[in-house]
């Protein structure tokens, strides 16, 4: 069975994304509660956002649908993204 993902760049954790880069959310590795809470804040698989400040290993500030969210150390290695385009 061929994975449909092959033509896409592999997902990487948010902590590796450079500043000013726009990315697409692939998945959040965490419990259901966490995923749900973030989804309701707009961090859904498929959502695109721009990284504003990224101090590896955190914090990371992102611009999502016109607002700024800050993600802590515990988060930046749970959020997996691919570059947009």
């Amino acid at each position: 069975m061929t994975a449909p993902e092959t033509n896409k760049a592999p997902a990487m954790p948010l902590m590796q994304v450079a500043e000013a880069q726009t990315v697409r959310l692939v998945e959040i590795r965490g419990g259901r509660g966490l995923q749900h809470r973030l989804a309701e804040m707009g961090l859904l698989p498929g959502a695109t956002f721009t990284v504003i400040n990224n101090h590896n290993p955190g914090p990371c500030t992102i611009s999502l649908k016109g607002s700024r969210l800050i993600l802590g150390r515990g988060m930046v290695h749970r959020v997996f993204v691919t570059p947009k385009n």
Binding site: L34, M41, S67, R68, L69, I70, L71, G72, G74, R78
Partner: peptide, 12 residues
């Protein structure tokens, strides 16, 4: 239990 991971909106 572990403390909840930190995600927060930053108002301007």
């Amino acid at each position: 239990g572990e403390a909840a991971p930190f995600v927060m909106e930053l108002p301007p």
